[in-house]
Simulated scan of single mutants.
Amino acid sequence: AAAEQIFVAEGYEGATIRKIADAVGVSSTALYLHFRDKSEILNEICQHAFSILLARCQELAETETDPLVRLRKLLRSYVSFGFENTNAYRLAFMTPVGQIYADEKGLARVVAADLYASFEKGVEQALPPQHDLQRARVLAQILWASTHGLVSIVMMKPHLDWADRDDLIETQLDILLKALETQ
């Protein structure tokens, strides 16, 4: 949590092992025993965020049988996660890729890929059986980008006079999923 706050407040360049160690109340040396550098700390934060969302996706895949209801719940879960975990969300979904994935085989990269594959599968299942896989991929990216847009603009512009958050979310999901039904 301390590292999340520092990365958000200071940016990747401004966050240092020393600042993180000071915030946690340990020495820099102690932190280096667990992490090679600050990119590993950021990778760990992102991996944790992706893992939470992946677990939610997997749970919905196991418990919700209606594909459209499941997809709506997946999107709602993503948006809710963003608003409930603003620092982790910003770091996982709004940090330049090179800073998160310094290691090509890093766990954050693997979990992020699994998370997206799970989401794309949910979109495919919500489409009619004769759907085109390329079309499903495009629709998955549109749905993800649209919900991300709502989370990020509300998060980054809190001073604007936003409508009720639940109304914003539910109206957006209504519009997106209605459009999906016509595909």
Results as ranks from 00 to 15, higher is better:
Thr29Glu: 00
Ala30Cys: 04
Ala30Tyr: 08
Leu33Thr: 03
Ser39Lys: 10
Leu42Pro: 00
Asn43Tyr: 00
Glu44Cys: 07
Ile45Gln: 02
Cys46Leu: 05
His48Thr: 13
Leu53Trp: 07
Leu54His: 05
Arg56Phe: 05
Arg56Lys: 12
Glu59Gln: 11
Glu59Lys: 06
Ala61Trp: 10
Glu62Leu: 13
Glu64Ala: 09
Thr65Trp: 02
Asp66Glu: 15
Leu68Gln: 14
Val69Gly: 03
Arg70Ile: 08
Leu71Asp: 00
Lys73Met: 00
Leu74Asp: 04
Arg76Asp: 00
Tyr78Glu: 02
Tyr78Met: 06
Ser80Arg: 14
Phe81Glu: 02
Phe83Trp: 12
Glu84Phe: 00
Ala88Met: 12
Leu91Trp: 00
Ala92Lys: 13
Phe93Gly: 02
Phe93Thr: 07
Phe93Leu: 06
Met94Cys: 12
Gly98Cys: 08
Gly98Gln: 06
Ile100Glu: 02
Asp103Ile: 08
Lys105Leu: 14
Leu107Met: 12
Val110Glu: 07
Ala113Glu: 14
Ala113Pro: 11
Leu115Glu: 06
Tyr116Phe: 15
Ala117His: 04
Ser118Asp: 07
Phe119Val: 10
Phe119Arg: 02
Gly122Cys: 04
Val123Thr: 06
Glu124His: 01
Gln125Tyr: 02
Ala126Phe: 02
Ala126Thr: 10
Pro128Arg: 07
Pro128Asp: 05
Gln130Phe: 11
Asp132Leu: 07
Gln134Tyr: 10
Ala136Gly: 07
Ala136Asn: 08
Arg137Gln: 09
Leu139Met: 13
Gln141Asn: 12
Trp144Lys: 02
Ser146Ala: 15
Ser146Met: 14
Thr147Leu: 11
Leu150Gln: 03
Leu150Arg: 04
Val151Met: 07
Ser152His: 02
Ser152Glu: 11
Val154Arg: 15
Asp161Arg: 11
Trp162Asn: 15
Trp162Pro: 14
Ala163Gly: 14
Asp164Lys: 15
Asp164Val: 15
